[in-house]
Design a binder for these strands. Structure first.
Lengths: 338, 338
DNA sequence: TGGTGTAATGTAATCGATTACATAAGATGA
DNA sequence: TCATCTTATGTAATCGATTACATTACACCA
């Protein structure tokens, strides 16, 4: 029957104790008699009290929430695979530790200002940084303030901060390795934007695999686009205009799906006369035709590890960055696949 | 160079005014001289100050955030179409008004407790209720406390609360109407769970269209499942075991995608010898083969209207619930489609 | 010149919890 | 029995802003 207008003072009066004691009961301080504890809980039940979170936060200087500021351009939204899966696992792990997520969107320009504001106004205890690029100004800002954050991805090797990443290099390596095993020799690579670390890491894996299996690196086989369906389509059209193709490795599933559309339009039959591999394993990957062979990212683990590490840092515990394993899923889009 | 340890007091001292005046400048009170305003802003810039959001919230009794508590079972996650699109537009509209989203997950059992807690502890100013069912206890709880909320969907006609909904009935009507126009007479309907209002409303539209076009209602053509790919697959298998099929209307795209898989396994060719229509227009709908004809929901508008209405209610403005229009998108899964 | 009204600013209470410090009540031992 | 120590509880300061109310300064007019 609580209307929410009950304060700790009311509970103290009702139970015949001081507010300090009520607070101690609420926070499980051990220095309270069993009897008083009982009286206090009875009063709480009777009046329907729940402590005001804001007042508590002000005093303890912690809001028990972590911030997630997501660029709201639509491309990004659908290109970051499983975005809500990531977010759910972030939130679940956070809740486990008594935190929740504060979510907002930003367009590119205001993103830095928004991160700074979240930190300076103490709206959250820590921030998750998505979609990081080289020399990301958000990182400088947070570093300068000394505010806790964790980066999804790993932009530069010489920077020291907390990150959670997937094995991008190894994933690309595995994809190329598999294509080589199928007998392919000319392996096209449709990569993401060059200024993203992910792209560089996947390119590195591509290169290493070529080298390992004695294939020459041919720059004309490597193309950079955006992580979108349209870009995959466009780049593939361009490839088809001037090249023979036997195998294409796309740095994202959305690109690969666009690419398959272009291939089919030109009369190709992925999985029969051309091999296509994607990266991510988004939900659509298994429902397109043919089902897409891809390098699966452990997105849910990325989410929970991000929460775990960030909260550890917030609470002053020992932390170290984490790289999570990827896995090749063979489906129908590669020759001889399922 | 702000370390975030600057308080309003420091600004007051630096600018040679009182904290009250600083506060007035920050909140754009008109009763401040141009000169003092300038002095205060200079001090703010110089010391790198940003007001503490928690302290402000405590005083003004508003946290400028709205809560979104999402069930974390994976089925729901992928069956609610465009979940992140909804969420982004919710967040964008909210930000426009100076609010952000507090996001957390719950499993079924704790959901009611969590909603109550968010309200009672004043962790948010209002709540968005997703995935509502008949006699939803969350609604009773919030009503009793007198806490602002907006429901996505419209469970019962005799209840009075704020909701945002799409034209489910009209959408189903349009789907059936289109199938009839294609010449179909036996129209299967694979609906969602019977206890959801959405299901009832779509069923109502199905019935009305049948009636309007002089077709008899045959209960054996109507089936209830879950809004998942697997359920769509299973139900379709069952249908195929005992029925001839010419047209199937699925109450969700994920179901329709599962259904098409079952149809193809049995040698059917959607778009050629059988018509399939979905509902939602999720991203996958346009990439499956054949592309899915479907009733598109204006999810982004649902998000922004939810924010708009809820914030209006929070701020004591006039509000009324909103029903948003759907639209049939003809693609390749219906005979004669694109 | 003095009274009155208005605009700008200051003082201090307030929001609702937590917690440092003070105190009271028992327990213990000589 | 009394000094001492321990444990439970209370008192009041505190977190960092906003704002009701008080005050000052000045303009205006009779």
């Amino acid at each position: 029957m609580g209307t929410g207008r009950i304060r700790i003072k009311d509970i103290a009066r009702e139970a015949g104790v001081s507010t300090a004691t009520v607070s101690r009961v609420l926070n499980n301080s051990n220095k309270v008699t069993h009897l008083t504890r009982k009286k206090v809980w009875e009063a709480i039940e009777k009046l329907g009290y729940a402590p005001n979170h804001v007042a508590r936060s002000l005093r303890v200087k912690r809001v028990y929430s972590i911030g997630l500021i997501v660029p709201h351009d639509i491309d990004y939204l659908f290109s970051f695979p499983y975005f809500n899966l990531f977010m759910h696992h972030l939130a679940m792990e956070a809740k486990e530790r008594g935190y929740h997520i504060i979510f907002t969107t930003s367009d590119g320009d205001e993103s830095v200002r928004l991160h700074r504001e979240f930190a300076m106004r103490k709206m959250v205890d820590g921030l998750v940084i998505l979609d990081v690029s080289d020399n990301d100004p958000r990182i400088d800002v947070l570093d300068e303030i000394g505010f806790p954050f964790v980066v999804i991805g790993r932009p530069e090797h010489n920077r020291r901060y907390l990150w959670v990443d997937t094995e991008n290099e190894k994933g690309a390596y595995r994809a190329v390795e598999y294509l080589v095993q199928l007998g392919h020799k000319r392996i096209h690579f449709v990569n993401g934007p060059t200024d993203l670390a992910v792209s560089r890491q996947r390119f590195e894996g591509y290169l290493k695999a070529l080298h390992r299996f004695g294939l020459d690196y041919d720059p004309s086989l490597v193309h950079n686009g955006e992580f979108t369906e349209k870009s995959g389509y466009d780049v593939t059209k361009k490839i088809l205009a001037s090249n023979k193709v036997e195998a294409i490795f796309y740095a994202s599933d959305t690109m690969a799906i666009g690419g398959m559309r272009a291939l089919k339009e030109k009369g190709f039959n992925p999985g029969k006369d051309v091999s296509v591999i994607g990266f991510d394993d988004i939900p659509s990957a298994s429902v397109v035709n043919p089902p897409l062979t891809t390098v699966a990212q452990p997105i849910s683990h990325v989410g929970s590890w991000a929460a775990k590490l960030l909260i550890n840092r917030i609470e002053g515990k020992e932390v170290s960055s984490k790289s999570l394993p990827v896995k090749l899923k063979v489906r129908g889009s590669t020759i001889g696949g399922v």
